[in-house]
Amino acid sequence: MPLPSHDEVVAFVAANRFPFPGQTTWPANYTTLTNAPQKTRAVPGPSGDYYPDIVVIDSDGRTREIGDVEEVLDPAKAPLWKAASQAGDPLPEYETRIFFLYVPEGKEDEAKSLLDANGIPYAGVRGYRRDDSGKISIVPFVTRGNPYDHQ
């Protein structure tokens, strides 16, 4: 079964992970924005604005959480992931930040290694796939943050 497209994954993750369906701990003043297929919200990047795939803001317009979806892992993107991570809220109790990286299932180890080798704080690495019926699924791989997120 072919992988879902980048924009399909972004839409699925935004609708089903930020927040999770039925999540009672999601702040009422949070809004989930996506930068696919159109750019709507940037964060400061190493060479100007960077548009991570998912940006969660609060009612004051502050960036709180970030998610990025990759189809191919490119080490050259590490500075952008670092910028995205720095834009997310800190999780001092877990010594990380609220940044999630979504990669094709089977690429999670490689993604984790790239994040760790580049000193990028992250709350989670997730795999994504499409099953035989066409349904997109997210596969938690590692969670460095709220244990609620490992689902």
Results as ranks from 00 to 15, higher is better:
19 P>S: 12
22 G>V: 09
22 G>I: 06
22 G>S: 08
23 Q>K: 04
24 T>C: 02
25 T>H: 09
25 T>D: 15
28 A>I: 07
28 A>K: 12
28 A>V: 07
29 N>W: 00
30 Y>F: 14
30 Y>V: 04
32 T>G: 04
32 T>Q: 10
32 T>D: 06
34 T>A: 11
36 A>P: 00
38 Q>C: 06
39 K>I: 14
41 R>M: 14
41 R>S: 10
42 A>Q: 13
42 A>H: 14
43 V>R: 02
44 P>L: 07
45 G>F: 06
46 P>N: 03
48 G>A: 14
51 Y>N: 13
51 Y>I: 15
52 P>Y: 08
52 P>C: 11
54 I>C: 14
55 V>R: 11
56 V>T: 10
57 I>S: 02
59 S>A: 15
59 S>N: 12
61 G>H: 06
61 G>L: 09
61 G>V: 08
63 T>Q: 02
66 I>C: 10
67 G>C: 05
68 D>T: 12
68 D>G: 10
70 E>N: 07
76 A>D: 15
78 A>W: 15
81 W>K: 13
81 W>Q: 10
82 K>W: 06
82 K>P: 00
85 S>A: 10
85 S>R: 10
86 Q>V: 01
86 Q>M: 14
87 A>H: 08
89 D>K: 07
90 P>D: 14
93 E>L: 10
93 E>P: 01
96 T>P: 01
97 R>F: 01
98 I>T: 04
98 I>P: 00
98 I>D: 10
99 F>P: 07
100 F>T: 07
100 F>H: 13
103 V>E: 03
103 V>W: 06
104 P>Y: 01
104 P>F: 00
109 D>T: 09
109 D>P: 00
112 K>H: 07
113 S>G: 01
114 L>E: 06
116 D>M: 13
116 D>F: 05
120 I>S: 06
121 P>Y: 01
122 Y>T: 03
122 Y>P: 05
123 A>F: 00
125 V>T: 05
127 G>A: 05
128 Y>C: 04
129 R>G: 00
130 R>N: 01
131 D>L: 06
132 D>F: 09
135 K>M: 12
136 I>D: 01
136 I>K: 08
138 I>Y: 04
140 P>C: 03
141 F>H: 14
141 F>C: 03
142 V>L: 05
142 V>N: 02
142 V>A: 07
